[in-house]
């Protein structure tokens, strides 16, 4: 590798841009800008995340083009592969239809955000100006060709000159990971928490009823689960009554009652076109409506 890379002019690299590099830049830079803007303006949170992925990928390829292949691929593996994946994970769990809350929870958030934004922009502009005026570019040819190449030199730099910041970063990450675990971890086997299957079985057999509760008395005369079971002496078995059925308001069951009685709505071919809002197809109809509204 060294021979092949040394064949390129070492001195020339400093201040020129080759055609290939220019083409790569003019393809990747608009793409990454597009991704950044898309991230800001996309309505859907997952789309935002995807636009950010586009930006990160473009940046990674830009690094590779500028002779930093290790940095480029690590950018893709770590940022695109791991961090954005975690973002997506959370977004997917939150649900696809949840939208941003318009109520501001933090007071003075806008002011603080704009101040910080302006400050950050100033910082970027200043460092960019300094990089363009005061710093003489040396290029990466020397570190890429001597002492084992790009990767080996990054390793050496990390474990000698930048050992302390490197370890500090790892300590920060470990603190975050341990903190997340402490917050999220629940000991399932501790006393007083969720019982194991064995404990449940033992408890059941120590109690006064090892068997199951009596089922409802569904006989030929009634096919409702609300029918109580009868004991041998003809009295009603209280345990067979479903608490849920007993407490359900009668109005909520009116649709079912109509269906059973045969006075409800009959199946109708018009329902297939979605033209008629069927009382019982409430939920799916709502779902499609919001979907169409989004688009």
């Amino acid at each position: 590798m060294s021979a092949f890379l040394l064949a390129q002019q070492v001195t020339e690299v400093a201040d020129t841009v080759s055609t290939g590099e220019a083409v790569a830049f003019w393809v990747l830079a608009p793409l990454s800008l597009l991704g950044a803007l898309g991230m800001l303006f996309a309505r859907n949170a997952v789309h935002s995340a995807l636009f950010l992925v586009l930006t990160m990928l473009s940046l990674g390829v830009l690094y590779m083009v500028q002779q930093a292949p290790f940095l480029g691929f690590v950018q893709i593996i770590v940022y695109t592969g791991a961090i954005m994946m975690l973002f997506l994970f959370v977004l997917m769990l939150v649900g696809r239809d949840s939208s941003d809350s318009v109520v501001e929870v933090l007071r003075g958030q806008r002011l603080a955000a704009s101040l910080l934004g302006v400050g950050f922009a100033a910082l970027v502009a200043a460092s960019l100006a300094r990089a363009l005026n005061d710093v003489t570019p040396v290029g990466l040819v020397t570190p890429n060709t001597t002492d084992g190449g790009n990767v080996a030199n990054i390793g050496v730099a990390l474990f000698t000159d930048y050992l302390f910041p490197f370890e500090l970063t790892s300590a920060l990450l470990i603190t975050a990971a341990v903190g997340a675990m402490v917050l999220a971890f629940t000991d399932r086997h501790a006393r007083g928490t969720k019982k194991t299957q064995r404990e449940l079985v033992e408890e059941r057999f120590r109690g006064d009823r090892p068997g199951s509760l009596p089922g409802p008395g569904v006989f030929a005369t009634a096919n409702s689960v609300a029918t109580p079971a009868l004991l041998p002496d003809g009295s009603i078995a209280e345990e067979s009554l479903s608490a849920i059925v007993e407490t359900t308001a009668k109005e909520r069951l009116s649709g079912d009652v109509r269906d059973v009685a045969g006075t409800g709505e009959r199946p109708d071919a018009h329902a297939l076109t979605g033209a008629r809002a069927d009382a019982r197809a409430d939920t799916p109809a709502e779902g499609t409506a919001t979907k169409e509204g989004e688009e």
Binding site: V53, F70, T80, G81
Partner: peptide, 17 residues
């Protein structure tokens, strides 16, 4: 590439998407 093995890892991590 000098980082050939990382290419495979990067591709698999993008493939999860």
């Amino acid at each position: 590439l000098p980082v050939g093995v990382l290419v495979v890892l990067a591709c698999s991590s993008v493939g999860v998407y």
